[in-house]
Design a protein around this nucleic acid. Structure first.
Lengths: 333, 333
DNA sequence: ACTAGGCTCTGAAACGTTTTAAGCAACGAT
DNA sequence: ATCGTTGCTTAAAACGTTTCAGAGCCTAGT
């Protein structure tokens, strides 16, 4: 309640406020004797610095904002983890905003970040829009896109080669002996999805296979079960025998739905997910999935931001490589 | 870069700084004409308030800190969601700290909360310790415990009747025809676990069943698979035929491991999880689980905090009731 | 006509830091 | 003896807000 400030510490140690501040921030400028006395006072009174005051005066917040699409998704949880570790090494704290799949919530967080005067922002956009980025750029706040590339490469970004991810998935299904591939994912507005589809289609076409695309607005388990019903109801000649799902949540729902309808996985329908979440291995049939180096991406994103905070304006695109984790929902010959 | 402050807005609108501030915070005190002029200037210059300055002067942060054990756990993700919604209704923002199961990280966040001068703290402790709570109390920062009760009821809390949760689980296993029940969870230091075990044992004893307790340090899918092996290796007379897992992550790992070892669920071993996460329904065998009203708990926790911010010192304990969601890992006769 | 009271608005103080310029003491070199 | 120099410390300004006391003006009541 009665807040202890530098003033109280200074009085208690019999020195000036400036000296206390120096002990805390540039101890080399102060004699060991007084430093000890001040430290004792700090400890004794339980002094805790007031970040607001420090930030106001110093003009820096030493904080970076990180807005993710949905932290419930383990991919983003790992991104956050990697980013926090790296940032904390560099003396920055991370303010995490969880969009919960809502652009409106995301906007609220971006606004909060601005008000907090964060030194930089890491943004994994729920749905890409140019305008807020330009706005931040005008304000001089460096931004690094996460899991999304800027269309003209004007803004630094950290992303995965989604086209390659799509190719890997298609290859797994092709090698599994499938003849009719389907990509189920979306929303189509999301860059990651478009790119995965492109890579997927590419391999499918090259192998002379039929390709279907089912666009979805979300990617959760319940939807997966519903779509499984729709697929199971298709006449055999229209039913895909190899499905690539936009993420593991969707894939696991599909998997359960298909099995529940008596279809055999991978014999009737092979399945590949995306993200390799913890539960992929624990599914009805352990799920083959495409893994992304999430924590590394988070760390790298922070590094790019530090690079800009260091003064560079030149955008950098960091690109990561996805990796197929083969389990039981695809066959290998 | 060139930061626009109240000063610039005031100059641009031809009024004093105080008036601009009034337009923003107490519009009723200012004439519609000037209000309009100021609003125009605010918009035109792209003014964004500096939270640090506001907070420093006002002495309030209008923020509450929320530290959770691990936001990757959907239970906590929902707690956060509920808390954020409720807080935002009341004009507060929530700073979320994710402990990632580490007490050290949790401490870092509590320290950050203090430095930020949050108005109050919602804490779901990774491992309960009295000391940091007393410290916060001395500083006059109201605290509400989440998913944990204070031993002497001195601090407000929001929790679930874990004993009842344990009972429900045991009843489900008993009614499933099991004769030898096991509780697998931990760490034993965690209050929730102790209570669930108590309720579990109570019902098991009353039904004259044998009870085993396997204490674990974490609760994840991998551990579940390892333990499944150990269980499968037990001689039949020592092997439990009904298992209650500390959470769904563990349960799903167990499930997969048991099925992988050729044991039939629920015929050889019945299984009950905790939390009813999204994937519970999508497992090899859809998982029977105990559901907790997470979002409601988060919202209620905020309400209790508001109650204390309103001046009350009297601790309140909010208690929620868990609910069994019956699926296929238990039998019903 | 004068005053009381109500509206608007202004100016300035205050919040707790960091940082800069300057002060002071002691010391070595001239 | 004087002059830098070095090492340590202090006083005070500044950061961008909110808030409070009061100034100015208008209206209504006497």
């Amino acid at each position: 309640m009665t807040d202890i400030g530098l003033r109280e510490v200074a009085a208690h140690a019999g020195v000036s406020i400036g000296t206390v501040s120096n002990v805390l921030n540039r101890p080399e400028r102060v004699s060991p004797a007084t430093a000890a006395r001040v430290s004792a006072a700090v400890h004794e009174l339980g002094y805790v610095p007031n970040i607001a005051a420090r930030q106001l005066r110093a003009g820096r917040s030493d904080a970076i904002g990180l807005s993710v699409i949905n932290i419930t998704n383990p991919f983003f949880a790992d991104v956050v983890f990697g980013a926090e570790e790296r940032a904390s090494d560099a003396g920055y704290s991370v303010i995490v905003g969880n969009g919960f799949d809502s652009t409106e919530r995301e906007s609220r967080y971006l606004e909060l970040f601005e008000q907090q005067r964060v030194d930089g922002i890491l943004l994994s956009p729920v749905e890409y829009r140019e305008e807020p980025l330009q706005r931040l750029r005008r304000r001089g706040v460096p931004v690094v896109l996460v899991d999304h590339r800027h269309p003209r490469g004007e803004i630094s970004s950290v992303s995965v080669d989604n086209r390659l991810g799509g190719r890997i998935a298609a290859q797994a299904l092709r090698d599994s002996g499938c003849r009719h591939l389907a990509f189920i994912g979306g929303p189509a507005a999301r860059q990651q999805m478009v790119e995965r589809l492109e890579g997927f289609q590419e391999v499918s076409d090259a192998a002379g296979l039929r390709t279907t695309h089912i666009d979805t607005t979300t990617l959760n388990t319940r939807l997966g079960r519903e779509l499984a019903d729709r697929i199971a109801d298709l006449p055999a000649e229209d039913r895909p025998d190899g499905v690539f799902a936009g993420n593991d949540h969707l894939a696991l729902g599909l998997l359960q739905g298909l099995v529940g309808r008596g279809l055999r996985v991978p014999d009737d329908i092979a399945l590949v997910g995306y993200d390799d979440i913890e539960f992929a291995a624990a599914a009805v049939v352990p799920l083959t999935s495409v893994r992304q180096p999430a924590a590394q991406m988070g760390a790298r994103a922070v590094e790019l931001l530090l690079h800009h905070l260091g003064g560079s304006d030149e955008p950098v695109e960091a690109r990561f490589v996805p990796e197929l984790v083969t389990r039981a929902t695809t066959r290998t010959h």
